[in-house]
């Protein structure tokens, strides 16, 4: 089942917080141009796994493969250079920056000038390129009209679009979306589904999501976490019928 050219693969991931075992021997594989869903009840360890993948939490043990190459779990600051981008559950826009500036922040790796020479204002062409690039991705999420608004004046669905544009602008190979549909109305959810599907032409996507209809619509593969363990994985259809999953979600001893 494990292919060597998966975009991202982790195995044997263990994380404890004090005496609490948050993740226990967890594995996950994201194929190229695949949309993978990570689901499970509250407190199952989804966000912990997400955080481990992007360096916010350091695993006690586990292996990390990127494009089939084993390497250390990445540091947060190296993430973008490795081709991984993520959005946050709380969206995490910079409230006092404009929408365009927010997206430009995500494009820093394309800045050719060093910090200092950029500071001296030598590289205005570089600036212009970053701006254009940011604008392009704002258009991709239908938010170019918001470019000059301050981020803290946006509606919630709009902040979600901008957050995705900021992740996309770094042109990642793997995009991690933390509850992209959370708090959205049904129209916005439909738009989000469409967007995610269109993304797969360029990248792999990993989603943590509570909205089952979103997960079932866009994901080709699901992993189900419960109490820090992977209790099921496979196609959406297969997982949906898995007795262990039903038990975990309904909280009964059906299995």
């Amino acid at each position: 089942m494990s292919t060597n050219n998966a975009a991202l693969r982790v195995e044997g991931v263990n994380i404890s917080f004090g005496g609490l075992r948050a993740l226990n021997d967890v594995y996950l594989e994201i194929g190229k141009n695949e949309v993978v869903g990570l689901i499970g009840p509250n407190g199952a360890g989804k966000t912990t796994l997400f955080n481990a993948l992007c360096g916010l939490v350091k695993p006690d043990s586990g292996k990390f493969f990127l494009d089939g190459q084993e390497q250390e779990f990445p540091h947060t600051s190296a993430l973008v250079d490795l081709g991984i981008a993520r959005t946050l559950q709380g969206v995490g826009l910079f409230g006092d920056l404009t929408v365009l500036e927010n997206v430009m922040v995500g494009a820093q790796k394309f800045s050719h000038s060093g910090l200092v020479s950029a500071g001296l204002g030598r590289n205005t062409r570089d600036e212009k390129q970053l701006k254009d690039r940011a604008m392009h991705y704002l258009e991709n999420v239908y938010a170019s009209g918001l470019a000059n608004r301050r981020a803290d004046t946006l509606s919630y669905p709009d902040t979600k679009r901008v957050a995705i544009a900021r992740a996309l602008v770094s042109e990642p190979k793997i995009l991690m979306l933390d509850e992209p549909a959370g708090g959205l109305g049904s129209q916005d959810i439909e738009w989000m589904n469409l967007l995610i599907r269109n993304l797969t032409a360029q990248m792999s996507v990993l989603i943590v999501e509570h909205h089952m209809d979103v997960v079932m619509t866009v994901c080709s593969k699901l992993y189900v976490l419960n109490f820090g363990e992977v209790i099921a994985s496979g196609s959406a259809e297969k997982v949906r019928r898995d007795p262990a999953v039903i038990a975990a979600y309904l909280g009964t001893g059906v299995a």
């Binding site: 993520r86 910079f94 770094s170």
Partner: peptide
């Protein structure tokens, strides 16, 4: 000028607002 019109300024403002998110977005905080 540095703060409002340059990349360095953008990085400075973003890092001051939310260092962890800036790091995720690829800024060398």
């Amino acid at each position: 000028f540095i703060f409002q019109r340059t990349n360095l300024g953008l990085a400075l403002r973003a890092s001051a607002y939310a260092p962890e998110i800036s790091r995720l977005a690829g800024i060398k905080v």
